[in-house]
């Protein structure tokens, strides 16, 4: 894997009073890859992701998107820049339909006077496009008019993934997308993540689940003590060595050279 760098961060620092959450961490996401981000609690993993998705403004350091510096003040800024985030706690409106959730905050209006003057929504087009997006990811749901609360957890996550894949132009960030799911549903979501990559979107996958990480990731970013400890190649490194690096039991330079990615 040596695609062009899509997103990069250099020397990100974030302090909360005396606590340093990010201590000059770097980050690098390449085109067409699934990059897993792992780390113990307090390793700065979630602060890093928050900085990349605009939920947190770093004190120091720079973030680059396609080589240009970006400064996100809110998740909405990041979204405008083409970065979509799928949140762990299934950020959907359960009483609303699948189509409404897919287009939430980005509704399509009817053309002409009904849309311009009366601001009428183009429900038919949103339904059709929702169907297309869901089929694109091979999520088998028959009606886009179903309320999201009638879906299983995995299907709901499917809606969230479809939404981000439909609107992301550069990056999809997934924060523990399988954490709340059972084995079967978790595997279904992993398959979705692969399909998102196949559509040419690089994916940042935050996960605690090592088997999941090793199953789909092209590279593994190991966060430790607010920095990037190493970037590993899951095809050349064992799960136990990865955990050892993550917890500090092993230094990255003790690994064979081809384990680093």
């Amino acid at each position: 894997m040596s695609g062009a760098i899509v997103m990069q961060a250099i020397g990100l620092v974030k302090r909360y009073g005396h606590v340093t959450a990010l201590d000059g961490t770097d980050f690098e996401l390449r085109a067409g890859e699934i990059l897993a981000v792992i780390g113990d609690n307090g390793a700065g993993k979630s602060s890093l992701i928050k900085a990349l998705s605009g939920a947190l403004v770093p004190d120091e350091g720079e973030i680059f998107l396609d080589g240009n510096v970006v400064r996100f003040r809110s998740p909405i800024d990041a979204r405008r820049a083409g970065i979509e985030t799928v949140y762990q706690d299934l950020a959907v409106a359960p009483a609303m339909t699948i189509a409404e959730n897919l287009f939430l905050g980005r509704e399509l209006r009817k053309p002409g006077i009904p849309g311009r003057l009366f601001r009428m929504l183009d429900k038919r087009r949103m339904l059709a496009e929702s169907m297309a997006h869901m089929q694109d990811l091979q999520i088998g749901i028959r009606s886009m008019k179903q309320a999201v609360e009638t879906l299983s957890g995995g299907q709901r996550q499917g809606v969230a993934v479809a939404r981000s894949a439909a609107f992301a132009r550069h990056v999809v960030i997934m924060d523990e997308p399988t954490a709340a799911l059972g084995v079967k549903e978790g595997n279904m979501v992993l398959e979705l993540i692969r399909r998102v990559r196949e559509r040419g979107l690089p994916v940042v996958l935050i996960s605690h689940n090592m088997p999941h990480v090793f199953e789909v990731a092209d590279r593994i970013h190991v966060a430790r003590l607010g920095r990037r400890a190493a970037v590993l190649n899951p095809k050349r490194v064992s799960m136990s060595d990865t955990v050892a690096v993550m917890t500090g039991a092993m230094r990255p330079d003790e690994l064979p050279a081809d384990a680093l990615a």
Partner: peptide, 24 residues
């Protein structure tokens, strides 16, 4: 039922956090 601001009223009542993250 037919306009975006109207649907946003429902979204805000249904899951304010999801609505906020969706850019509403």
């Amino acid at each position: 039922s037919q306009t975006a601001p109207g649907r946003h009223v429902y979204a805000v009542g249904n899951n304010p956090e999801a609505a906020r993250l969706a850019g509403i």
